[in-house]
Design a binder for these strands. Structure first.
Lengths: 150, 150
DNA sequence: ACAAAGTGGTTGCGATAGCAACTATTCCCG
DNA sequence: CGGGAATAGTTGCTATCGCAACCACTTTGT
């Protein structure tokens, strides 16, 4: 079977995506560094802040963060040391531990969030036309649905 | 100044992008693993294959790969051990070394490339409408231009 | 022509994170 | 109820990669 190559337009989309994504992430991360957070920490705090009682089972949190259980154990070391999150052993299930946002963690998130948002706006969202915004939303959702569908 | 939040449409674009990109990369990487390559190795081989004499100065290669010089030194260890790339000391400038694609490296790339392309197609490109393809190309190019403009 | 500055590459160290193996607890089924 | 399977979390090991320090070579300025 002959290989069906990418059209110039397709190639441009692929290359622009692949070359730009990493740089964009680094830039966003750089803006977050002034709060002593990296992207992983920020995501962790953000997800906890939106959860019931601002806490989650380690396991579920790992899934949300796309980390393995062991990866989360390691990441927790950092935020625990900074007292942004506390660890709570479940009384109902001896295997389970919860990560809970502390007041300090919540305050830091509240401080950092507007600046993070501003990064996202100025580095990405505000550069895109409404049509492009829509295409990003629908496009990435299709890609995501396809990945989950495996 | 009041924080200007993201509109639902903007939020959807941002979340879809941020949540999907990592998963997509992992899926593409998984498809590459059957050739004993990770994405970094593949990129390295691909860039060398398109270069004059299939070789590049370490320094320039690092830039293309978005690695630091030290990062490239480490990545080279892997492909050198696999004999996919050879190292050539410059005779004109004693500081300079070149990375050059070996025949083995070129053959492996030639084998892997169609499958990689097929991954990219089936996991991303073929899922997108022509309008979305175009929006990805223009959108990411704008983001990239803005990042370089700093 | 020679010292100082610049450039290219490597190395030690530290941070992140996955895998496999392990422990502890709970669930399920006969 | 008792034992095997499943689940939750941790730990040792490994791989990647950046930073800072370092070495070697080259360029520049006087």
């Amino acid at each position: 079977m002959a290989t069906k190559w990418l059209s110039p337009q397709e190639m441009e989309a692929w290359l622009a995506f692949i070359e730009t994504t990493g740089d964009l992430m680094k830039a966003i991360e750089r803006d977050l560094a002034q709060y002593g957070l990296d992207r992983g920490d920020y995501q962790l705090l953000a997800i906890l802040s939106e959860s019931e009682d601002q806490q989650m089972r380690m396991c579920d949190l790992a899934d949300r963060l796309r980390l393995t259980r062991s990866g989360l154990t390691r990441r927790m070391e950092g935020v625990l040391k900074k007292k942004l999150v506390s660890r709570i052993q479940s009384t109902e299930d001896g295997r389970v531990a919860f990560a809970q946002l502390t007041t300090k963690g919540f305050d830091l998130l509240k401080t950092a969030a507007p600046h993070h948002l501003e990064s996202v706006r100025s580095l990405m969202i505000d550069l895109l036309s409404p049509a492009e915004i829509k295409a990003f939303a629908t496009g990435f959702n299709k890609i995501s649905a396809n990945l989950s569908a495996e």
